[in-house]
Nucleic acid binder design. Sequence first.
DNA 1: CATCCGGTCATGTGATCACAAATCCTGGCG
DNA 2: CGCCAGGATTTGTGATCACATGACCGGATG
Lengths: 218, 218
Amino acid sequence: MNQTARPAQEPASAPAHDRVYRTLRTRIMHGEITPGVALTLRGIGGEFGVSMTPAREAVRRLAAEGALFLSSSGRVTTPELTNERIEELAALRALLEVELASRALPRAHMALIDRLQTINSNVAEMVSKRDAVGYIRTNLEFHRTLYLRAQAPAMLAMAETVWLQLGPTMRALYGRLRRTDPPQNHRLIIAALKAGDEPGLRLAVRSDVTQGLRLLAG
Amino acid sequence: MNQTARPAQEPASAPAHDRVYRTLRTRIMHGEITPGVALTLRGIGGEFGVSMTPAREAVRRLAAEGALFLSSSGRVTTPELTNERIEELAALRALLEVELASRALPRAHMALIDRLQTINSNVAEMVSKRDAVGYIRTNLEFHRTLYLRAQAPAMLAMAETVWLQLGPTMRALYGRLRRTDPPQNHRLIIAALKAGDEPGLRLAVRSDVTQGLRLLAG
DNA sequence: CATCCGGTCATGTGATCACAAATCCTGGCG
DNA sequence: CGCCAGGATTTGTGATCACATGACCGGATG
């Protein structure tokens, strides 16, 4: 019971299980946890200064979203994805995110495009610094910023679930990635947004989403 | 402690929280719970003869899947969907299920089509009997049987999540439905499967998925 | 008669404990 | 040297309890 200090971000309501859940979630989504490692409820509880009960809730919630794998005996690990599963999740990303981008297009004002360009420069910086976690984080921020304009919360939530499942593997993907080229597809996305070119946007998003995963599963 | 009798389906391993989860899940998916009603952890625990702990886990898991709504104070109710949300979920169904059907098409042998026709006659029977829950159950069984052939478990899981969110509202939808016509779109789906007609299949699935929800949100 | 305030009750949260099962380590046997 | 058995330990599960908070119902007051 030492972590009672408010992390300067939680205004008032911060149930313990929710704090644990959110922290673990972003960790997994950003690829900060390598696939296959085992987590223990007591360990998590100890790290966050809480008992097993909130730790268990957070873990089960993440398992329900596919972010963690529960063995038959209840042991919890971060999942190791098969190639088929990776391809399937990539197809899901394509399906969902193309639709989200398409819905965001008519609402994409100049202010949004500016923000996307700013984020994109951050992405490029992360690539040049070879910061894997930073790259994943800013890359997802780029996509989320665009999709928020689609006004489709359920669809966005599903896309985030897919990101979550891909998180640990994305990190491994980045490790194999030897290039330092800036995100070309992101520029195509921005260009299509500016031009109001829906087919071009769909194609650009599909390429951006598919390319990385392709080489991992190849 | 009345339901201690094994439901004749659980061989040995039946963790309490999992039993509670599965039971509540099918109840919700089949529309047996009307939207807006409140559930209590102690109430659920009492019904299943378990303590609050497994009940809480089951509820949180369902909430993570969007099947239940948690108020800010932790109160749990089955969600009441807005029209926008319903339209969005219908669009998700169309997106996911068209893809699933398309992937199932090349693997659809005659035995599968026979099974689909059998299930479809059950659907028709439920419609004629005005059995809302039975209709929803057999209708979902029809779709699931087809999509299982797609060999895409992650995609199927997402589709089921959408069904889950739509469950309580589907029941209300059926209440407004005055017709007793047999499922026309199901026959179109079967015909397209027989003919190996992919565009026709996509169209038929999209229509089947969209038509019902359209009149509810209209 | 509406409104606001009071307390009582129900409900979720989280800690702790007992228990069973799975895992792991170790020592002995082939 | 490899393999298996057996016990110690770790780990998840579920029950119970104390506590805080929000809901609900009552009456008193304007």
